[in-house]
C-alpha cells in the first residue's frame, strides 16, 4: 500500500490534534505531500514530528480559519511549497457548550460560526480556484453527528455543523462539473481531546461506550480511513455525498446521503 495519495498535495485544516492528526499521519503514509494547518502551534509541532517518521514532504502553517487574510496566507504558503493543492480537509472546529437558545450569547454564536462554518467557507473559497487551474481536486468537510441529531448542549454548534453539511451539498452542485469532488463526513462519538474535553467526565464517556452498539467509541484512525477514501481516486464517482461514521449508533434514525 502506501501510495493511494501518491503525488497529491493535501491541506489538512485542523490537522494538529484528534482526527486531524490521524489524517495527517495516514496521508503521509499514503505518499501525499501534506500541509498541516492549525492555530494550536505546540500540538501542530508534535503532529509534524510524528508525520516526519513516515515521509519528508510534510510542513505546517499557522492559521486561524476565521480570518480571511490568514486563510489566503495558508493557501499561498502551500502553493509556494508544493505548487498545487489536490485535497483540502476541513477539520478545524470548536465545540463550546452553551445554555438553551435564549441564553446563548452573541459572542458564543459568533465564535462557533466563524470557525466551524465561515472558516470552511473561507478555506474552500481560497483553494477552489487553484484546484480548477490544475484540473480538479477533492474536498472533505468534517461535520458532526450534531449536524443531524439535536445534541442539546450547544445550539450554535449543531447549527454550524448542519450548515457545513449543506454547504458541502451546494458547493458539490456548483463545482463537481469542474472536476472538484466535495463530500462530507459525519463522525459519531470519536475518542479525541475535543470529545473528552466536552463530555467533561470519564464517567459519561464510559456510559456512552456501554450504550454504543459496538461497545466502544470510534478511533481517530477509523475516521482517517474514511477521509482517505474520499480524498483518493478510489472515490472518483463520489461527490455531494455524506458519509456517516458513527459505528451504527444511528441515534435518531435520521436519513442522510
Amino acid at each position: 500500500m502506501a501510495d493511494r495519495l501518491k503525488n497529491k498535495v493535501a491541506i489538512i485544516v485542523g490537522g494538529a490534534t484528534g482526527i486531524g492528526r490521524a489524517t495527517a499521519l495516514r496521508f503521509v503514509k499514503e505518499g501525499a505531500m501534506v500541509m498541516i494547518a492549525d492555530r494550536n502551534v505546540s500540538e501542530m509541532e508534535k503532529t509534524l514530528q510524528l508525520s516526519r517518521q513516515y515521509g519528508s514532504d510534510v510542513d505546517q502553517v499557522v492559521v486561524d480559519v476565521s480570518k480571511w487574510n490568514q486563510v489566503e496566507n495558508m493557501v499561498d504558503v502551500t502553493m509556494r511549497r508544493y505548487g498545487r493543492v489536490d485535497v483540502l480537509v476541513n477539520l478545524a472546529a470548536v465545540l463550546m457548550l452553551t445554555g438553551p437558545l435564549v441564553e446563548v450569547e452573541e459572542r458564543q454564536w459568533d465564535m462557533i460560526m466563524d470557525i466551524n462554518l465561515k472558516g470552511s467557507f473561507f478555506t474552500m473559497k481560497a483553494t477552489i480556484p487553484h484546484m480548477i487551474k490544475t484540473g480538479g481536486g477533492s474536498i472533505i468537510n468534517v461535520a458532526s453527528s450534531a449536524a443531524i441529531d439535536a445534541f442539546t448542549r450547544s445550539l450554535p454548534y449543531n447549527v454550524s455543523k448542519a450548515g457545513l453539511q449543506h454547504l458541502t451539498n451546494v458547493a458539490a452542485g456548483e463545482y463537481t462539473s469542474q472536476g472538484i469532488r466535495i463530500n462530507c463526513v459525519i463522525p459519531g462519538s470519536v475518542d479525541t481531546p475535543q470529545a473528552r474535553g466536552s463530555t467533561q467526565s470519564h464517567e459519561s464517556i464510559k456510559n456512552s461506550m456501554l450504550r454504543h452498539p459496538m461497545g466502544r467509541i470510534g478511533k481517530p484512525e477509523e475516521l482517517a480511513n474514511v477521509i482517505l477514501f474520499l480524498a483518493s481516486d478510489e472515490a472518483s464517482y463520489v461527490s455531494g455525498s455524506t458519509y456517516i461514521a458513527d459505528g451504527g449508533a444511528q441515534n435518531s434514525g435520521r436519513r442522510n446521503y
Binding site: 458539490a172 459496538m214 470510534g218 464517482y237
Partner: peptide
C-alpha cells in the same frame, strides 16, 4: 470502514447534489 454501519452511501458522481 470499521466505524460505519447502518449507512447508505450515495455514489452518483455529484448528480443529486447538482
Amino acid at each position: 470502514s470499521s466505524f460505519i454501519s447502518g449507512e447508505t452511501i450515495l455514489a452518483d458522481g455529484g448528480s443529486w447534489a447538482g
